Computed example of a mutant assay.
Amino acid sequence: MRRAVVTIAVGGAAGVAAVAAARRMRQARVTDDRWHSITVNREREEVGPQPQPLHDLGETIQVRVRPAPGGRGTEIAARCVDAGPEGVRALRRALRETRTLVETGEILLPDSPPTTRRTPLGAPLAYATRHGRQEGRL
């Protein structure tokens, strides 16, 4: 019994440290103004000049739509113009939504409500699910 309590305490402390480190890295990384791009499996004519999720961001972004290298669909690239970390997160979310909308016809979302009970150990997974479309690889 004692070993289990120590394991949970060490695991919880490691999880808290990992979340804090990830936040620091994310805050340092999302303040740039670089181009973020996705490739969709559709022809240039099917995508249009600016897909709806990107169009909703308005004048805060610049968008380039061009054929992908090697004839592999269409490349959509976008970057924020004078927007902080929240603008970059919104852009990354819009790019992910654009990909699913263009390729499937709808914006795919995780199960809601989730199929499990809320527990303290499940909190990191719940956080990742809520914010997963704003960070990580496109």
Rank of each mutant, 00 (worst) to 15 (best):
G84D: 15
R23G: 08
D32M: 04
A22H: 13
A21G: 10
G70S: 09
S112W: 15
T60V: 06
E86L: 10
G71E: 06
R29A: 10
V47T: 00
R118S: 10
V63K: 02
G48W: 01
I76N: 02
P49A: 02
Q50D: 02
Q62M: 05
T104P: 04
A13G: 10
G132R: 13
E135G: 02
T104C: 00
R3C: 12
L54E: 01
G73M: 05
T31A: 14
V30N: 03
V5T: 10
P113Q: 03
V40W: 01
A14I: 15
P113I: 10
A28Q: 10
T98G: 03
E45I: 14
P114Y: 09
Q134D: 08
G122R: 13
G70L: 06
G58A: 08
I107Y: 07
R64W: 07
L108N: 08
R79M: 11
L91F: 12
H36C: 00
G132E: 06
I76T: 02
D33G: 04
V81I: 12
T39A: 03
L108K: 15
H36L: 04
E106R: 15
A9P: 07
P114F: 06
I8G: 12
R2G: 08
E59M: 04
L109E: 11
Y127W: 11
I8W: 03
T31V: 09
L121K: 04
R66N: 06
T129F: 11
P85R: 14
R133H: 09
Q62K: 02
Q52C: 01
R137V: 11
A14Q: 04
E75A: 06
T116W: 15
I8Y: 02
P120Q: 07
R2I: 15
D56V: 08
L138E: 04
T31D: 10
G84R: 13
R29G: 07
T129W: 12
C80L: 07
R29H: 12
R137S: 11
S37P: 03
Y127V: 00
R99F: 01
T39I: 09
I38E: 01
R133I: 09
S37K: 07
L91S: 03
T115P: 10
Q62L: 07
